[in-house]
Computed example of a mutant assay.
Amino acid sequence: MERKHLIAKAEIVFSMAVFGTISIFVRNIPLPSAELALCRAVIAAATLLIWQILTRTMVRFQDIKKELPLLLLSGAAMGVNWILFFQAYKYTSVALATLSYYFAPVLVTVASPLLFQERLTGRQMFCFVMSTLGLVLVIGVSGGAGAGDTAGVLFGLGAAVFYAAVVLCNKGIRNVTGINRTYLQFLASIAVLLPYVLFTGGFHLAELPAKGLASLLVVGVGYTGIAYTLYFSSLRYLKGQEAAILSYIDPLVAVLVSVTVLAESVTWLQAAGGAMILGFTILNELKPKGAA
């Protein structure tokens, strides 16, 4: 079991680090955000279908029919989440888009008592307030952020809302787990995104240059199909808190990529706000001493 645990930790660390560098390739794909999200879902679903065929783990309808509504809802939310997140990249830096996106765990914490009758502790309320103050600094109400930054951060926050919806839906899905759940959510995303793309501008894949097409394949196969497979495989052998803490490798890597690779600027106030969002969200994930 110890060996499996170490492999699981390596898988989640690798997948989170990979997720943190996705912006390098997304920047090279000149497609509308909705079309990019649709292509990502199609390529990833095809990748997972091949994996299921090879491992003989195909989903049976009788196993999912009771939870199909939640699977469809979570998949639709995932598709909208991707659209808004990619849209955030078009308006602001990768660092600010990612930091605002990682407000999602805070939203889950606040929504859980309302939806699942979970008790909200004083510490969780404190973390929520401080993370919200961090978000205010990231948005730049003091005037430090331009209109583009503000729009980008708001798109990132919108993506966080829909990612929180995915997480909350998944709490109610108990009989479909891991890769099968993700595959079905990809299919639901495709079902929602396809008509949206068709009626809001159509397809532009034929216009993609070779570099853009190669980047799209990398995002679909590597960053979505393979990385999601590794991520969900790792969860089987990790404690929830352990997985939650390791997931913050993603925004940390994204910020480093934004500043060092993409040479994007972040003000000191925005950096402080981002540190508050991540710091208090991580604090919220940590169990108090003596807790079960």
Score class of each variant (00 low, 15 high):
207 E>N: 07
162 F>Q: 00
174 R>Y: 04
175 N>H: 12
161 V>I: 15
188 A>Q: 07
174 R>P: 02
210 A>T: 13
178 G>P: 07
187 L>D: 02
151 A>L: 15
161 V>F: 13
152 G>T: 13
165 A>S: 15
186 F>P: 00
203 F>G: 06
160 A>Q: 03
173 I>K: 06
150 T>I: 15
159 A>K: 02
147 A>G: 04
177 T>P: 00
175 N>G: 09
206 A>R: 13
166 V>D: 00
179 I>T: 12
208 L>S: 04
200 T>V: 09
149 D>V: 12
175 N>T: 14
173 I>L: 12
182 T>G: 01
197 V>N: 02
190 I>W: 06
154 L>G: 03
159 A>I: 09
164 A>R: 03
170 N>Q: 15
176 V>D: 04
199 F>R: 12
158 G>R: 01
155 F>N: 02
160 A>G: 04
166 V>T: 07
186 F>K: 02
209 P>F: 13
158 G>Y: 05
177 T>S: 11
211 K>P: 06
150 T>F: 07
194 L>Q: 02
184 L>F: 05
162 F>Y: 04
153 V>L: 05
209 P>W: 12
159 A>S: 14
164 A>F: 07
165 A>C: 14
188 A>D: 05
197 V>T: 11
157 L>N: 03
175 N>V: 08
168 L>E: 01
208 L>D: 01
165 A>F: 14
201 G>K: 14
186 F>S: 00
160 A>Y: 01
166 V>S: 03
191 A>M: 14
166 V>K: 03
196 Y>S: 09
179 I>G: 00
152 G>F: 06
195 P>K: 06
152 G>C: 10
194 L>G: 05
171 K>F: 10
188 A>Y: 06
204 H>D: 05
177 T>R: 14
171 K>C: 13
174 R>W: 04
162 F>C: 01
194 L>S: 05
203 F>M: 12
199 F>W: 12
212 G>C: 11
208 L>R: 04
186 F>E: 01
167 V>D: 05
162 F>K: 01
211 K>T: 15
175 N>M: 08
146 G>F: 04
158 G>F: 08
210 A>Y: 10
204 H>T: 09
192 V>G: 02
170 N>H: 13
164 A>S: 15
163 Y>R: 00
205 L>E: 07
165 A>Y: 09
193 L>H: 00
199 F>A: 12
185 Q>K: 07
160 A>H: 01
186 F>M: 10
152 G>E: 08
168 L>V: 11
167 V>M: 13
181 R>E: 04
189 S>G: 15
213 L>M: 13
153 V>Q: 00
168 L>Q: 05
146 G>T: 10
181 R>V: 01
174 R>A: 13
184 L>C: 06
174 R>F: 04
191 A>D: 08
181 R>M: 07
200 T>N: 14
187 L>T: 04
170 N>T: 12
213 L>Q: 03
198 L>N: 11
202 G>M: 14
194 L>V: 08
150 T>D: 03
152 G>P: 09
161 V>R: 05
156 G>I: 10
182 T>F: 02
196 Y>T: 14
154 L>M: 15
172 G>E: 10
160 A>F: 02
163 Y>G: 00
201 G>N: 11
168 L>H: 05
207 E>F: 08
199 F>L: 13
212 G>A: 10
205 L>Y: 11
202 G>T: 13
183 Y>S: 03
160 A>D: 05
147 A>W: 06
194 L>E: 05
178 G>F: 08
175 N>I: 08
174 R>V: 12
